[in-house]
Amino acid sequence: MTPEVTVARSLDEALAALARDGAAAHVLAGGTDLMVELRTGRTRPERVVDVWKVGELRGVREENEGLRLGALSTCAELLRDSRVASHAPLLVAACREVGAEQIQARATLGGNLGTASPAADLNPALVALGARVRLRSRRGAREVAVDEFLCGYRKTLRERDELIESVLVPTRPAHERQLWRKVGTRRAQSISKLTVAVALAFEGACVSAVRAAAGSVGPRTLRLATLERELVGRPLSPALCRSAAAACARADITPIDDVRSTALYRRHAFARVLATLLAEPDGVPACPPS
């Protein structure tokens, strides 16, 4: 009943434990998800690898291609890091609305990605930022776009011997606006009813590139293809904001009724929030242009 636990002190130890034969191990980071799962018996792993003390998974580094964030970066660390603030204000805004302080101190970037809940708040932000996740195993390392990595309801492309090592947020374009909005069941300590994250690059008055993603409105973190298509190459007029948001809400999301909200609400609130977010970025908890 009690799982076998490996408390890894280094990346090598963690990877060795993951590479062992037998039942696949569950990775334990900040515990905000797995500790509850274990307690309620919803998850009964045979093996757990605790990576919390693996120093190689911590820290934020500037690289040529962008900002590299260790998988064990907590929400609290991310939202106090000035480099993250200037590079990815969208991610900071998302971190600020995860749980409350106690959860922010423990919830990690890697945990959000690994759990791959459709309601995980950091994942839409990472998708909108075009982030890539680096997976490491004893076989080597590889990088996968977060968008592809989150491949289904609580499903990822992580192989059983792989560990999420870090995330690369690519260098930002010169003129960009990053937008974020979470709608939860209350004003803090809430699981989202919907989240939306948008990164807009501009050339002159026209949108030159868009990446957008949403959470809690489908079985996984969703990329908003219709929205991206509608906006590219056009100036952000109020009419376009409204029509693109509505088209996106019709085509890009597949919300359901659950204990937190309804499909009808999610679709309509999503369209309304998104339209406002695009049209009046200063009037909502969005991020200032970097």
Binding site: A100, T185, R186, R187, A188, Q189, S190, I191
Partner: peptide, 9 residues
């Protein structure tokens, strides 16, 4: 899931 107001609410 059983939501009550927080200090922010």
């Amino acid at each position: 899931t059983c939501i009550i107001p927080t200090a922010l609410d």
